[in-house]
Write a protein that binds this DNA or RNA. Structure first.
Lengths: 299, 299
DNA sequence: CCGAGCGCCAAGCGATACTTATGGGGTGGA
DNA sequence: TCCACCCCATAAGTATCGCTTGGCGCTCGG
């Protein structure tokens, strides 16, 4: 059954005449007549009676009209829903972000996005960069906010797009009582802490710390390891270790018992957005990407 | 929004791949690809993400799929309903018939029709021939069972089809005590009743009676007039009049107090079926017409 | 590194569908 | 009563649309 003809048939029923339907459709009368004939052939039963002043629906015609009306309504609903999605009056964005961004950049970006497009629905999921890339590859999220330390190979396979949106400098974090705790704004070299006890972060952060120290000429004594930046600072505040933490983690929660100094010679980690190649064609995703990169640029 | 493409999109979603949908449809891959592209252009938003191992629906794609499924279900329902109608597993026939046929021919035809097609729904409406023709012209009934007396112009304008299906002879009906009441099977001439008091039937029947009497050489003394054949016979049974009644009316209800004799020289009235020209294309109507003419032929 | 699978692009050809032209049937007004 | 108008059907022509063929890029797995 040709669905297009069904909608033409609706016009015939509305106009109670073939010529009238043709006028309504901007066509000629034979065009509509032929459509009706095909429809009747497919149906195997007359749909209208040809009367001198137009046509009159048969029982089958009335039956078909009910279905045609329902179909037209569905088509209308589909059109409206797609319009809403393409005009950002609806839509969902699923976002994966690493923890320290989830507590800083992401909330700011989400509130910016909410101001721009109040009807958008953003769903956040915390994941470290490799997992975030997997989620994106599996289609479980639309956007992944990741980072890569300097010299590290960023996550994300060939199929997806990787956009750098900002840098996150690394800071040396010391107990307030540490001899190197002052002055706060002057960069401190890793070498100065070669004798200290260290705490690592997540697996990749610990690797990066080790590499940075090797580059500075010593092998760090890493005794602790947790990706929880609050716990890390608590350890440091109690004088149990020193650490190298990203600024975002400190923005998220700063323990009053620690001192922070820039790390000389340590290049900042780079923040990346990951998304599918076609994602910037999808308004909701594209606007989320824009909001995220705007927020990161402002920071 | 092109509805045909919606159904193609369903196949894409089902196969999770454009090529797979093409195979399912018996087409080539570019054909489906082009349809999808048109659909996405109309939608103004991507419907799928092209992945190395096929495609994955976007949010808009999922939304559209829901509508497409609903539409496909409606199309299926429409197809089935039309099939039922064309295969006589459903359908309604609206029939108008004059009273004496409504009590005789029509019930027989309806029961014949019910045996042939148990699911058909027949709706009877009583109407004298002119009204029946009007009902048909107005589209309020599908079939009209009418009659015309000999020499009378049958009802039904040019647009409709008129099919004679049988004859209904007229009988002279007398009180049992009337001198001409016997013998029952020998035709009696109207002239023999020139001195009697007459009762007419409906307006047209009374006209016909008058004409028949004039042709027989006298003017009848018509004192009563009712189209109720039971009442007419009751009048006659009580010796108040004689009458000329169609056999069908006597079949419907015969008063034991009357005598019946064939009317010599009076031609029977003819039964007609009226229907729209295209009506025999409509299975339900066509089978009702067949049942009616079969029943009339048997009588 | 190469082959298989998937999808996109460009060009060609055929089927579909709309147009113009014509005719028949019925109705209403002159 | 006849003519003019309206409605629909049919036939033939043409143009558009849509499917096919052929070729390319990309990704993944052997």
């Amino acid at each position: 059954m040709d669905v297009q003809r069904l909608l033409i048939f609706r016009e015939i029923a509305r106009a109670q005449s073939i010529g009238g339907a043709a006028r309504a459709l901007g066509w000629t009368q034979p065009a509509v007549s032929q459509h009706l004939r095909h429809l009747e052939r497919q149906a195997g039963i007359p749909l209208v009676l040809r009367r001198p002043r137009g046509v009159q629906l048969t029982e089958a015609g009335h039956a078909l009209l009910r279905h045609a009306d329902a179909i037209a309504a569905r088509v209308q609903a589909a059109t409206e829903e797609l319009q809403a999605l393409s005009q950002l009056r609806a839509g969902t964005v699923r976002l994966a972000a690493f923890p320290s961004a989830g507590a800083t950049v992401v909330p700011a970006a989400m509130s910016l996005l909410a101001r721009r497009h109040p009807r958008l629905d953003v769903r956040l999921r915390e994941a470290e960069p490799p997992q975030a890339a997997d989620l994106l590859a599996a289609g479980d999220v639309d956007v992944a906010l990741t980072f890569a330390h300097a010299g590290e190979e960023p996550a994300g396979a060939g199929e997806m797009v990787r956009v750098p949106i900002g840098e996150d400098p690394l800071r040396l974090v010391l107990p307030r009582s540490h001899p190197c705790a002052q002055p706060p704004d002057v960069p401190l070299h890793l070498r100065e802490l070669a004798r200290d006890t260290w705490t690592g972060g997540c697996e990749r952060c610990t690797d990066h710390l080790r590499q940075a120290c090797e580059a500075a000429g010593f092998t760090p004594d890493i005794r602790h390891g947790t990706d929880d930046y609050v716990l890390t600072q608590a350890l440091i505040a109690r004088g149990l270790a020193v650490g190298l933490l990203p600024q975002l983690a400190l923005d998220a929660a700063l323990d009053p018992g620690v001192a922070v100094r820039p790390a000389a010679g340590v290049r900042p980690r780079v923040l990346y957005l990951l998304h599918h190649r076609e994602a910037d064609q999808i308004p909701a995703v594209a606007s989320a990407l824009r909001a995220l990169s705007d927020t990161a640029a402002r920071a």
